[in-house]
């Protein structure tokens, strides 16, 4: 019988190596794999290239800055133009201690989707005539210019779902979907934190958001309370 369940988040991360590229699902508080992030902090992995929508906004990713585990972030929202409170990431970024690649959010998720779907990139008008265009190829299709955006994949994806079975089928809840389904397709090793674990066969196939084929490891955890006050 296929059983992808690991007993603890720490054991689920046993082979995460220094210098790894790691995707993190989640949008602010929704669908964020907080227990896996805290386990990654305990593991002390260094030189990480992180790929996440946001850092320092109600997610726990900022803890990875405490021991300077991050070398680079690829994100859509990381530095705030206003607001007094700065995240650790923001402080380190402003001191030039960590690298940041900012990506428009639609381009961010579609690059991940392309990687997972075996597509060599995609064309979008988003970013044309802006700083995002720098260094990118412009492709004209039937008289319309587009930017060529390339796939984005990772060594590991740490994602969050509401429920899983032992086969790795995932059921999401509310706005907790966000980047999790795309990231599940675009990494060598996909590790899912879930609130509830059921036996294979107990999930309604109609409700499965990520089929088990994409998921390598499942770990069931009590959700860590998170909140973002803007």
């Amino acid at each position: 019988m296929i059983d992808k369940v690991f007993p603890t988040p720490d054991e689920a991360l046993h082979d995460v190596f220094d210098g790894a590229t790691i995707m993190f699902g989640g949008f602010v508080t929704a669908g964020t794999p907080t227990n896996l992030i805290l386990a990654l902090q305990r593991r002390g992995t260094k030189g990480i290239t992180g790929i996440a929508n946001n850092i320092g906004l109600g997610d726990k990713l900022d803890v990875l800055c405490e021991q300077r585990q991050l070398a680079k972030m690829i994100a859509t929202f990381a530095i705030r133009a206003s607001g007094a409170r700065q995240s650790l990431f923001e402080e380190q970024y402003r001191r030039g201690e960590v690298e940041l690649e900012l990506v428009p959010q639609g381009t961010f998720v579609e690059r991940i989707r392309a990687a997972g779907a075996g597509i060599g990139g995609f064309l979008t008008r988003t970013g044309l005539g802006t700083l995002v265009q720098e260094g990118k190829q412009i492709v004209n299709v039937d008289g319309v210019d587009y930017l060529l955006e390339k796939p984005l994949r990772a060594d590991f994806a740490l994602i969050k779902a509401f429920k899983a079975d032992r086969l790795g089928n995932l059921v999401y809840r509310g706005a907790g979907r966000n980047f999790n389904p795309a990231m599940a397709t675009a990494a060598d090793v996909v590790i899912a934190e879930v609130e509830h674990l059921v036996e294979t066969g107990e999930l309604d196939p109609e409700t499965i958001g990520t089929p088990g084929v994409y998921v390598d490891r499942v770990v069931q955890c009590e959700p860590v309370p998170v909140r973002w006050y803007g």
Partner: peptide, 13 residues
């Protein structure tokens, strides 16, 4: 500083 988020896609789309 600043962040892009969904603003560019919304502005274009």
């Amino acid at each position: 500083g600043g962040s892009i988020g969904g603003a560019m896609d919304l502005a274009f789309g």
